[in-house]
Design a protein around this nucleic acid. Structure first.
Lengths: 220, 220
DNA sequence: CACTATAATGACCACCTGGTCACATGGCAA
DNA sequence: TTGCCATGTGACCAGGTGGTCATTATAGTG
């Protein structure tokens, strides 16, 4: 277990309203600029507090960022738990479907947190970057790993494939689907962002169909 | 057709050796820091020229970056052409295999250029970012689009799938495979970076196998 | 009220950035 | 040698950064 990120006590003593205002503006700034280019000056200006105050709540920029990222992982955990609960009865590909929909819902609800994650993926010199990404990737493996094992046991997933390979392909397609939803230049022409809910659902079905049966035509 | 990026004439008059030294250090810096955080001071210091000189070769940071990125697209074009030439006789999945191997070879040969591309994906406020990414994505669609059409005509690809859908899945899996090769935290436990050439080839086969036949067991 | 502990403040610091420009340098022509 | 002009130079600029700290304001207690 990793230790929870806890800001200085002064921050926790603030009113809920002020705390969430600070969090909101910090999230916005990090989402907009990434860790490196995010400006503490911009944050305090928008929140309407002095820079010195921010430094009484957090030791430095890194601590603020880690706190924000910790909230992000909390939200991911939340959404994943919901997804798991909603798909208890579903079979393997049904659970994959629920996972995709959970991802889409996350982006709808928390686009700025998702943006922070995307920026983190390839930005350099972010404190503990690999750890942070690893934490999120671990969610995915904790979710898909057992799912694949179970799917294999139940005969819904081929037994001749190593589990990591299955997880890799699921990861690849699901992540790219979400990225394409958030960034249209990554959707390979699917125009995911502009789709209605039902069109989106159809696209999800098509992707899952390919995951299930592959690109080649069936042959007895 | 987009116009070629041409630096100021002073740069072209430089000796080949000096030009390539400048290019090399610029590539290194952009790969390391991304566009925003890349430091012209660092570049000129490493090249051993005055900052004013750099500004006689390029109008500004943006022009230098565009020049570097233009070299990147040249290299991609080169590798793709090689791949296309090497797979003239191959069937659909054979050509996919060649494309993956071409990508791996590119990363081996030009890791820093690939790094620049990855950073560009989610960095903000890079001049003409969407255009630049679009240019690279277009390569992919120009390569996979016709490939899919042909594969479908020849009966190697299911006819009930929209071409964009097929391209999307190919893109997703291939890109993630390359990203996992370059960044181990994205390989879902496959440990691609540490693999020998033959192990890597085996992993490629496994992925293509899934792309062809899917995750579900065959059933008559 | 006075006293105290805590919190809020913003001027200030050293450092770095992309970009400029007046000047120095060097090679070539007359 | 003299003049010329393209090229090379680095001190300099305004503006921004993360971070500090002496000072002020506030709230709670006796």
């Amino acid at each position: 277990m990793s230790k929870p990120i806890v800001p200085k006590s002064t921050f926790m003593n603030l009113s809920e309203e002020k705390r969430s205002r600070i969090l909101r503006e910090a999230v916005r700034e990090f989402a907009d600029k990434g860790f490196q280019k995010a400006s503490l000056n911009a944050i305090v200006a928008r929140v309407g507090i002095a820079k010195g105050s921010l430094y009484q709540y957090f030791d430095n920029k890194e601590a603020l960022f880690l706190f924000v990222f910790d909230r992000f992982t909390d939200l991911v955990k939340e959404v994943l738990a919901e997804a798991a609960a909603a798909s208890l009865e579903a079979d393997f590909f049904g659970q994959v479907r629920v996972a995709v929909q959970a991802g889409l819902a996350f982006i709808d609800r928390h686009p700025e947190y998702y943006e922070i994650y995307l920026k983190l993926l390839f930005e350099q010199a972010v404190p503990q970057r690999e750890d942070l990404i690893g934490k999120v990737r671990l969610f995915s493996r904790d979710y898909f790993g057992p799912l694949c094992e179970e799917g294999r046991r139940q005969g819904q997933v081929r037994r001749d494939l190593p589990t990591e390979m299955v997880v890799f392909v699921l990861d690849a397609v699901l992540d790219r689907f979400l990225q394409g939803y958030a960034k249209s230049y990554l959707d390979s022409g699917l125009a995911l962002a502009g789709k209605s809910r039902s069109e989106l659902a159809a696209a999800v079905e098509a992707v899952i169909d390919i995951l299930r049966d592959g690109l080649a035509p069936k042959q007895g």
